[in-house]
Design a protein around this nucleic acid. Structure first.
Length: 489
RNA sequence: GGUCGGAUGGCCGAGAGGCUAGGCACGGGUCUGCAAAACCCUCUACACCGGUUCGAAUCCGGUUCCGACCUCCA
């Protein structure tokens, strides 16, 4: 078996994955800020890194997968004195901040469940790690890379960059950042307190209007934008761990700052490999809360959004995401979603066909080379679209065996079934949608189908067609197949 | 303004110096009382202009257009 290659954003190159201490692998992925309903864009990271998670397990690694929940700390950017995002929403809705965080954490989990994403090994909350964050800030101050002003603590970017290459991850040059060329769009709050405009907050002093605040050596306040990930990844994965993942939009300043904080604290690079997935776009533009073009996940399931022509199932969304490589942008459209829906149905229908295949004395197929191609597709920087292309070759093969164009022997049959199940269900994490019916309805439909069959057999097509048409009117479609009639909603 | 990335057939999307994915739609067929469904087969595209090369969608230069980051963001 060949090794896994992943594109490392830090070195900007394809790198062979070598764990720090095999068979253990530590992964940290930036999770959501729980102050809004998850939209399609929020689904991409979990889906992509879930395939990574599953693939590493498939390769025999023991994976600790950490995905945080940010329930504190990010600043609202509308000029009103840097109020905590969650606290801001709480005021509007007159709810406890933690109530909001809990509500949206739950809805995030619902999304993950519906998408059949494996649970994280640890899902730490920022609010539960204030002490760790404070300790880390203190160490950074002791090491001389941060300073306190009026109850706030800032990271000293200039000092840090004298001995470290701040900006390496995101391809930025400190001098350019300091020059701030052309970027005079907005005065950041607290700018006057900073020694340099690029210094970022590790700890912010809280005014009385801040609902979420904690005691610290510098007074009442709340943690800065980036420190939680540094503190929690260090706590659960160590000073240096294997893979850090997140969205491309977090590259700067979030991940750049994480590196700076970790290095300033421990003199160690936090992650060996950095992976960033690209954005989902709508009409070519990033789907983002601030652009108000996000389509909420539950709107996809209900079809209740002006941009949607119909409802789409969770697996359709997942398959849609997996049909594009994670490092490219993926443009949303109804046509594309509908294509994914039909393709997925064909892919999944093959699992039933496999069960009814006839075993022959000899095989006309080469299952081993297909297996190799599937593995190599994933090993090549998680190339799920190539994997899916190979799986569709497998589907055609299965169907051709079924219709007698090709044949398979017992040994190959076992391999084929295992190949299909491993890649479709275990690695991509697809699943068949639960049937919408219930036992009583199934019984009624069985009866109706039997009556129609009798009508057809006595050539009473007026009756059989009436049954079919009237069922169609209430949204139940009958399909006459070789093995009898089935129905779908 | 700075930095980075992208333009692929009707649509979505891989790939990548010669072997030219895959899905969906279209078309042809099998099946069927009819229809639908299902299944099979088919469909040769890489923004524009130059250059390098025996050969470029793929490399180089230029042009046009689009996007991302630089500010919270998956």
């Amino acid at each position: 078996m060949k090794d896994l290659k992943i594109f490392d954003t830090y070195s900007k190159s394809l790198a062979s994955f070598k764990p720090i201490s095999a068979p253990f692998v530590g992964i940290y992925v930036c999770g959501p800020t729980v102050y809004g309903n998850p939209h399609l864009g929020h689904a991409r990271g979990p889906i992509v890194f879930d395939v990574l998670h599953r693939f590493l397990k498939f390769c025999g690694y023991k994976v600790r997968f950490v995905r945080n929940i940010t329930d504190v700390g990010h600043l609202v950017n509308d000029g009103d004195e840097g109020e905590d995002k969650i606290a801001k929403k709480a005021k509007i809705e007159q709810l406890e901040p933690m109530e909001i965080a809990q509500f949206y954490t739950d809805s995030y989990h619902k999304m993950l469940n519906s998408l059949n994403v494996l649970p994280a090994s640890i899902e730490p909350r920022a609010s539960g790690h204030i002490i760790e964050q404070i300790e880390m800030i203190e160490t950074i101050i002791q090491n001389g890379f941060a300073y306190e002003v009026n109850g706030s603590v800032y990271f000293d970017v200039i000092k840090f960059s004298q001995t470290n290459d701040y900006g390496r991850l995101s391809g930025r040059i400190v001098e350019d950042l300091l020059a701030g060329a052309g970027n005079e769009t907005r005065e950041l709050e607290g700018q006057s307190e900073k020694r340099s405009p690029n210094d970022f907050a590790l700890w912010k002093k809280a005014g009385p209007e801040h609902i979420m605040q904690w005691s610290s050596p510098w007074g009442k306040g709340f943690p800065g934008w980036h420190i939680e990930c540094s503190a929690m990844s260090k706590k659960y994965l160590g000073e240096t761990f294997d893979i850090h993942g997140g969205g491309l939009d977090l590259l700067f300043p979030h991940h750049e700052s994480e590196i700076a904080q970790s290095v300033a604290c421990s003199s160690a690079q936090p992650a060996r490999y950095w992976m960033h997935h690209n954005m989902i776009t709508v009409n070519g533009q990033k789907m983002a809360k601030s652009l108000n073009n996000g389509i909420a996940i539950d709107e996809f399931f209900s079809g209740n959004n002006a941009l949607l022509e119909q409802a789409y199932s969770p697996m359709t969304l997942k398959f849609f995401v997996l049909q594009a490589h994670y490092r490219g942008t993926l443009d949303f459209s109804n046509q594309a979603l509908q294509a994914s829906e039909k393709g997925l149905n064909r892919l999944l229908a093959a699992s039933d066909t496999i069960k009814q295949l006839k075993i022959s004395a000899l095989s006309t197929i080469d299952i081993d080379s297909l297996e190799t191609k599937c593995f190599e597709a994933l090993a090549d920087d998680l190339n799920t679209p190539i994997l899916i292309a190979h799986l569709f070759e497998l589907v055609t093969l299965i169907n051709n065996i079924d219709n007698g164009t090709q044949s398979i022997n017992n040994e190959d049959y076992i391999k084929l079934e295992s190949l299909y199940n491993s890649y479709v269900f275990d690695l991509l994490g697809l699943q068949k949608e639960a049937s919408q019916g219930n036992e009583k309805l199934e019984g009624v439909m069985k009866l109706v189908i039997e009556l129609r069959k009798q009508a057809k057999e006595s050539k009473n097509y007026a009756v059989s067609d009436a049954i079919r048409n009237q069922l169609a009117e209430i949204g139940i479609e009958l399909k006459d197949g070789k093995e009898g009639t089935t129905f779908t909603f």
